[in-house]
Design a protein around this nucleic acid. Structure first.
Lengths: 342, 342
DNA sequence: TTGAAAGCGCTAACAG
DNA sequence: CTGTTAGCGCTTTCAA
């Protein structure tokens, strides 16, 4: 109240201490460990602090505690609509815990991913990796140094959050089977993709149990363009059911099929994975296996923060999020003659 | 080479200094000011540093230099596909300059935006704000304290990057006019939106010059749902040309129109803004006014970093990015009787 | 060109 | 409960 006259820059703990007539450490405590300071003096300190416009310097705090309250979120391609809800979820969970998130976009390049990691690792308390391009062992190495959670991938000894691909695929197959399809073609995504492997595997098993013929085309790039290219093979195969690695490809397949004179869903039924924003906008609206992406982002961050706080990382089995089949208009009763495969 | 035996944690400058037989300050110089150190000793220091696995601690560096090499990117809604390329661009530009980006998602809430800013401001060297919910004066206040660039909005005294809405709208109107439409309805987005105001204004001017009747419905939420709702009013108005505030709304309008039994583009031509990912996927593919979003993100960050380095912020007039009309199948020759409005 | 010493702003023992 | 005293790891005068 008295001598705040000529102060310019952001006040420090010392300014507050002087104004309050206490030791700097007391001011520090008043903020960091409110319990360990007389509630009256604490109140006075707080009052003076806000009056002075004091804001704790997070950098200085981080230097002495080595807690930056920042986590990194590495995304293989921010441009992929699949990640939007994931980012949002991560953001929300981080915010709730008072953490800030450093977003890194790998731009689908392992090189850029590495560089980004290097820039970011020394600053953050943990890292969430979405669909990494790096090898399992590389990931394991990093996980040994820093708390880490990977998404959409099961890596031994590294905590992970994945979707229930098997069950989702199973539902998709059941759906196709229940409306009369006897043959299903899988449009494969990137070979390196963990999810692709799991989905294909689950499809084969489901096909076996339900006595449906299963075929496969690909791999193709996991994009609309990839799907369009795949459509040629798909059309050639003659399966009436089509399940694509993801929604983008499924949409591409639909486009390609149409271009080839085939109608969806009358001639072919197609199903995607992920339920991206565009899935409900295309026509026909796409039947797809949806995952709770938002929740996934939150879960990943929460687990990460728990690990940060010393929780034993459950590296054993991945944390699996439920999936559900959203039936829209891209699938329908099989109206073409059934051709059971070779 | 000799005594690296029992070191565990990340080595510090002191470890390197000891191993190299020089003073810590010399090691520091070797990295920060290579010019001011004997090139031979510099080389030796570097060698030893890499051998020891030394990594400068960015937090400590930031504390003494007050340069964190971090910028913040505040997005009003990460879930909005519009931002994806923007984020990517910002990311790329930041990376090139060795900066890292802190992403904050305002979740369309002014409250959350404030909180996020507060968390982030003391840590970053500058901030890029995409479509803020805050008032001009609030933004101006912050801009006075920290380097800042706003996107998609012109705020007096604050450097900004915007798209050439006027020209884009002009092109859209010319296009509709050239294919025979005499009446155009604008589907308004959020009233608070700067872009909405500019677009509407530009539409009126263009309509005047080209002697087209201009009408307006709304405001509606800038979402697909908002567009669907707007479609009722649009259908009632009978204009054959429709321009929506953004692509989401345009897509919604198309859906709503179809539901009402009107065909696009035979009965109504519709145009959106932004060219989001889904625009080319819906059917009919959406004609839209595209902006170089990726470039915009880069430009914003580059300008921001320039300001950070002391460049006089060009607060005068906004930096405007070109737009172009992408003609797809949602617009076509006017085939309905022309009804000039009241 | 190099070394010594003094911080950056905050936290963390350790006394009192 | 509060003050004192060291640092966190790096940069930066100021001398030498």
């Amino acid at each position: 109240m008295a001598d705040e006259g000529t102060k310019k820059a952001t006040p420090t703990i010392y300014d507050v201490a002087r104004a309050a007539g206490v030791a700097p450490s007391t001011v520090s405590r008043a903020f960091a460990r409110p319990g360990r300071v007389n509630s009256e003096t604490a109140a006075r300190i707080r009052a003076i602090a806000t009056e002075l416009g004091y804001r704790a310097n997070p950098v200085a705090r981080a230097l002495s505690t080595s807690h930056t309250r920042m986590i990194a979120l590495m995304i293989s391609d921010v441009t992929n609509p699949f990640y939007a809800p994931l980012i949002r979820g991560a953001q929300v969970a981080a915010g709730e815990a008072g953490f800030v998130v450093l977003l890194e976009d790998a731009q689908e390049s392992a090189q850029i991913e590495r560089e980004g990691l290097e820039r970011v690792l020394p600053v953050v308390e943990g890292i969430v990796i979405g669909s990494s391009r790096m090898s399992d062992s590389a990931l394991r190495t990093i996980a040994k140094q820093t708390p880490m959670v990977v998404l959409n991938r099961a890596v031994a000894d590294v905590p992970s959050v994945v979707t229930d691909n098997a069950r989702g695929m199973r539902r998709a197959v059941e759906h196709l089977g229940s409306i009369g399809h006897r043959t299903i073609t899988y449009v494969a995504g990137p070979e390196a993709s963990w999810a692709d492997g799991v989905r294909w595997q689950a499809l084969r098993e489901a096909g076996m149990e339900l006595e449906l013929a299963i075929r496969r085309v690909g791999p193709f790039p996991p994009t609309v363009g990839g799907g369009v290219r795949a459509a040629v093979d798909v059309a050639a195969q003659g399966s009436t059911g089509v399940i694509a690695y993801n929604d983008q490809m499924a949409i591409g397949v639909m486009r390609g099929l149409e271009a080839a004179g085939l109608r969806v869903p009358q001639d072919r039924s197609v199903i995607g994975f992920d339920d991206i924003f565009a899935a409900q906008l295309v026509s026909p609206p796409l039947t797809t296996v949806a995952a709770p992406l938002h929740m996934m982002g939150m879960t990943a961050v929460r687990n990460l923060l728990a690990i940060t706080k010393g929780a034993r990382p459950e590296s054993g089995r991945p944390f699996v999020m439920p999936t559900r089949l959203i039936v829209r208009a891209s699938t329908g009763p099989c109206s073409t003659r059934v051709r059971v495969g070779a």
